[in-house]
Amino acid sequence: MSARVRIDQQSPDVYSAMNRVVKVVREQATAAGLDRALIELVNMRASQINGCENCLDAHWRAGTAAGLTPQKLALLPAWRDSQLYDDRERAALAIAEAVTSPAAGPHLDDEQYAAVRTGLTDDETSMLIWAAITINSYNRISILSRHPVPVRDAEGRAVAGGRT
């Protein structure tokens, strides 16, 4: 069996274009009033659904750096049942799930979409959707390329001799 093609390395110009798109989305999300912690919740939830260990590893660290608590990250799969998440976070997570699993649901019908939009501007809604689209793209790149994830210690540092 041949080794996996690391498509980010095999097609660096395409990957670089993806990175530029993410940079624009982050800039526009900030300009729209979305904080990094909210975007990281979207990144984490989509990566959980997709089972992307590399993106989960990257975004739990980015999420904690952005101010997300370990509890909020740990309870993320049960966000619908938790009182821990505010209305904006719930809206962002509903968008993340709708973009990540459009065939399996949950779909956002017109009524649900209107409910999600409560408290979000058009710019915020657009940027949350774009954030979900871009993390899903990175999930696919990483999963299909089998990007390695290092073993980390309790402080999040890569451990020598761990999987690389």
Rank of each mutant, 00 (worst) to 15 (best):
Met1Arg: 09
Arg6Ile: 12
Ile7Tyr: 15
Ile7Ser: 11
Gln9Ala: 10
Ser11Asn: 03
Pro12Leu: 06
Pro12Met: 05
Pro12Arg: 09
Tyr15Val: 01
Ser16Ile: 01
Ala17Phe: 12
Ala17Thr: 14
Met18Trp: 12
Val21Gly: 00
Val22Tyr: 00
Lys23Tyr: 02
Val24Ile: 03
Val25Trp: 01
Val25Ala: 01
Arg26Phe: 08
Arg26Ser: 08
Gln28Gly: 06
Ala29Thr: 09
Ala31Gln: 13
Ala31Ser: 14
Ala32Cys: 13
Gly33Ser: 07
Gly33Gln: 05
Leu34Tyr: 11
Leu34Val: 14
Asp35Glu: 13
Asp35Gly: 12
Asp35Val: 07
Arg36Asp: 15
Ala37Ile: 08
Leu38Val: 14
Leu38Ile: 12
Val42Ser: 06
Val42Leu: 10
Arg45Thr: 05
Ala46Gly: 14
Ala46Asn: 07
Ala46Asp: 00
Ile49Trp: 05
Ile49Asn: 06
Cys52Gln: 07
Asn54Ser: 08
Asn54Gly: 04
Leu56Cys: 10
Leu56Arg: 11
Asp57Leu: 11
Asp57Ser: 15
Trp60Gly: 00
Arg61Glu: 02
Arg61Thr: 07
Ala62Gly: 09
Gly63Ile: 09
Gly63Asn: 02
Thr64Trp: 00
Thr64Gly: 11
Thr64Asn: 08
Ala65Met: 06
Ala65Tyr: 02
Ala66Trp: 01
Thr69His: 07
Thr69Val: 13
Pro70Ile: 07
Gln71Met: 11
Gln71Asp: 07
Gln71Tyr: 01
Lys72Asn: 01
Lys72Glu: 06
Leu73Lys: 01
Leu75Gln: 06
Leu75Asn: 02
Leu76Arg: 04
Pro77Lys: 07
Ala78Lys: 06
Trp79Thr: 08
Ser82Leu: 04
Gln83His: 10
Glu89Phe: 05
Glu89Ile: 08
Glu89Asp: 11
Ala91Tyr: 10
Ala92Thr: 11
Ala92Gln: 06
Ala94Glu: 09
Ala98His: 12
Thr100Arg: 04
Ser101Tyr: 00
Ser101Lys: 09
Pro102Cys: 04
Ala103Asn: 06
Ala103Thr: 04
Ala104Glu: 14
Ala104Met: 04
Leu108His: 14
Asp109Asn: 15
Glu111Gly: 13
Glu111Pro: 01
Gln112Met: 09
Gln112Thr: 06
Ala115His: 08
Arg117His: 02
Thr118Lys: 13
Leu120Tyr: 05
Glu124Met: 13
Thr125Ser: 14
Thr125Asn: 11
Leu128Gln: 02
Leu128Lys: 05
Ile133Trp: 03
Thr134Leu: 02
Ile135Gly: 04
Asn136Lys: 09
Asn136Trp: 13
Asn139Trp: 03
Arg140His: 01
His147Phe: 10
His147Met: 10
Pro148Arg: 15
Val149Leu: 09
Pro150Asn: 04
Val151Trp: 00
Arg152Thr: 11
Arg152Ala: 05
Ala154Ser: 13
Glu155Ser: 10
Gly156Cys: 10
Arg157Leu: 15
Gly161Leu: 10
Arg163Gly: 07
Thr164Pro: 04
